[in-house]
Nucleic acid binder design. Sequence first.
DNA 1: GTCTATATACAGATAGAC
DNA 2: GTCTATCTGTATATAGAC
Lengths: 208, 208
Amino acid sequence: MPRKTDKRVRLIEAAKTLIHQQGFNLTTLADIAQEADVPLGNVYYYFKTKEAIGMAVIEKRAGEWAERLASWSEIADPLTRLMTMVKYGLENLEVTARFGCPIGGLCQELGKQGGPLSDLAAKLLHDVLQWSEEQFRALGFEDKAPGLALNLISSIQGMFLLTHTFKDPKFAQRQCEELRAWLELLTNRKVQMPEVAHATNREEAFAD
Amino acid sequence: MPRKTDKRVRLIEAAKTLIHQQGFNLTTLADIAQEADVPLGNVYYYFKTKEAIGMAVIEKRAGEWAERLASWSEIADPLTRLMTMVKYGLENLEVTARFGCPIGGLCQELGKQGGPLSDLAAKLLHDVLQWSEEQFRALGFEDKAPGLALNLISSIQGMFLLTHTFKDPKFAQRQCEELRAWLELLTNRKVQMPEVAHATNREEAFAD
DNA sequence: GTCTATATACAGATAGAC
DNA sequence: GTCTATCTGTATATAGAC
């Protein structure tokens, strides 16, 4: 966390991390303020309420994912696009094992509470689902695309939940292999695990 | 909630419901006391701490699942056993759409926090996973049983998460059909959606 | 814009009368 | 065993000096 960054940005980044690690309800504004190295009282200059911080965090994640999906969309082969997403789930597996999927965690926790936070979190997952659907459509699965996308995202989310529950990255690795095999069978083509760019933006990784 | 029941039992039942609906952290002892119609101060006669109530709730769920799995184990055909479990996920779908899977929710929320509660919740999911594994083994999938069970439970959990996130029971129905098809393909046998006994114990349903 | 001090509310937990 | 009253800590949020 660089020191010179704008405080608002620091607060959002701190909240993003802490909410992933502890969940939204258990993360206090004091926690966030401390992590961002901002005095507690000053937090309210940037965010009126805790909910407002939550919104900012989810919007931040949404923006990161929009970029990510856009960049993957530039990959020539839709099948490789999908596998790139699957492979992406294997990044930061230790973190995922400890704290679960940031998106799935938000949807699970906030979904029960309703309200704008819940809706924003749902939209985040919806965007990923929709992107996947487009890839399947690009592969020629016109009618079956929604079902296939549902299947894929659902599997990934389930795999994260088990990985987190049993604190074992092996679960995810195994499951990603299964997904690769499934995509091969489905498309009747060879699928290689694509190399994932490590260098670019380490800090924006999935599970931080 | 019958009035004459023992208070301890009433408290556990109230906590079970509320924790499912609101999550553990957001559910207060006052909530539980009110729902169980027990004065707040009296709660501490039965449970030393909030964590103790949490333990009791998870143990209750574990007990219910142990019974459920044992009863399903008496079904002649292992494939039908598995499909009975899948079909069970379709019970109380409206509740599941509103509040998610009780087990998955606990694992997600408590998994981040560590401690005995987290371990108990994980064991609950582990038991279901293990039972599924046994069924696949009984079907002749010796080596592949762990992977298949992982696949199945993972899919079911993912399906619940999406159902909950998008508040749409359709997701689960669709996904259950996919799972049936998957099991058919896998075993090369016709699989029927088994009839689920509605009459027996409505109150112990999955998602209450 | 920044930060200290504090108000307000409510959580988990306890004391002790009955 | 039961329940009222209350302690104590801590969370969100605000007031107001600088």
